[in-house]
């Protein structure tokens, strides 16, 4: 009997709780919000989660295409080892890609920053210069860059690139020298990747508070100091954004030979190459790209602001002091007790 009662009570309580729940509107909002992003959820399952898992499965198999469908043959890590050890081109091109990306990303970002700072000065014809520096954004695509580089329009004629490349090749080992000299040969088209970045920097520079600079100038700061201590810390998030954007852009550009290599080996139709082999390549390539992005992000975030450091230091010192104070208090209390006991005895 009593058990039944308690059950009913529980029911009642549950009902009450339901009524009492404050978040009904919030719940409805949450459901509507989920409804709004349902397209994305379906898309992510269909074009992200499913392909990711499947491509990993492909990478572990040797796939042959027969009239009846795909024929899987489990080979384990063989595809990966084969790509790394016996492929004629992939490891070398991957190394080239890594070296040239690590070198060209800072070049592009620093160049964009310099141009943005110059455009941010009080000059006439700002709109015209912005127009010029943004122009490449609409032109950069693989085939066009390929055509321009092929015809030698991609290099700076004023600088003798031949001299630079030969001197580089004399100093460095060829695995490093080749990507570097190719960067110098196609300098202009590499700088062309910086259109969006320039505008991102420019617009964040323009949104900075002018009064900070005025305050710094009154305190006697020079332009140089203002740049390092005010401008740079302020646009730091934008620098990271631009670095990530640049890496992603370089990786997805058709000028990048690796992605062409993946495509050709996908449709190679030979015994050992095919979907599985290409999937293994794609996995390794993607991992490398993600690692490069993380590397740059960590390198960039690790360097903390001077002031942040000082604040941290001060906090630490403060804590230490507090601890010592407590210690002294405790010790004096103990001593007092001891003394009292001694006095009593």
């Amino acid at each position: 009997m009593s058990e039944k009662m308690s059950k009913e009570e529980k029911k009642q309580a549950r009902k009450n709780r339901k009524k009492m729940k404050a978040g009904r509107l919030a719940k409805r909002e949450a459901i509507t919000g989920l409804l709004f992003i349902t397209p994305w959820i379906i898309g992510a399952l269909m074009f992200l989660a499913y392909p990711l898992i499947t491509s990993f499965r492909y990478a572990l198999n040797n796939i042959r295409i027969t009239p009846l469908g795909m024929n899987f043959e489990y080979v384990g890590y063989e595809n990966f080892t084969q790509v790394l050890l016996s492929d004629a081109e992939f490891p070398m091109q991957l190394a080239d890609y890594v070296v040239s990306t690590i070198i060209s990303v800072p070049i592009i970002v620093v160049f964009a920053l310099i141009i943005a700072i110059m455009l941010n000065q009080n000059i006439k014809g700002k709109g015209f210069f912005r127009l010029i520096f943004f122009l490449p954004v609409i032109i950069v695509s693989g085939p066009i860059l390929g055509m321009l580089n092929e015809e030698g329009a991609g290099s700076i004629t004023a600088i003798d690139t031949q001299a630079i490349t030969t001197s580089i090749q004399g100093v460095l080992p060829s695995s490093l020298a080749d990507p570097i000299s190719s960067i110098f040969e196609n300098m202009v088209t590499i700088l062309w990747y910086s259109g969006v970045q320039i505008l991102i920097f420019l617009s964040s520079l323009q949104k900075m508070d002018r009064s900070m600079f005025e305050a710094a100038k009154i305190d006697g700061g020079s332009g140089w100091e203002c740049f390092w201590k005010i401008t740079l810390p302020n646009i730091k998030p934008m620098i990271l954004l631009n670095i990530v954007y640049t890496i992603v852009f370089i990786s997805n550009n058709e000028q990048n030979t690796i992605i062409e290599l993946i495509k050709t080996s996908m449709f190679a139709g030979t015994q050992e190459k095919g979907y599985g082999y290409a999937s293994a390549m794609a996995w390794m390539y993607s991992l490398i790209v993600v690692v490069i992005v993380i590397l740059f992000a960590v390198l960039f975030m690790a360097k903390k602001d001077v002031y942040e450091k000082q604040v941290k230091k001060a906090k630490k010192a403060h804590k230490k002091e507090l601890r010592q104070l407590k210690k002294i208090e405790r010790r004096s209390a103990r001593n007092a007790k001891k003394n009292a006991r001694a006095g009593r005895v």
Binding site: E29, I37, A44, L48, M266
Partner: peptide, 30 residues
């Protein structure tokens, strides 16, 4: 949907969106 409503897992969704931007399309291509 992301800007206006609060729902569980919103941060995860935003994280995945940023991650898909970084991930090269070659990996899901085949």
């Amino acid at each position: 949907g992301l800007a206006r409503f609060e729902f569980p897992g919103k941060k995860v969704v935003l994280g995945i969106i940023i991650f898909t931007f970084i991930l090269p399309s070659q990996i899901t291509m085949i």
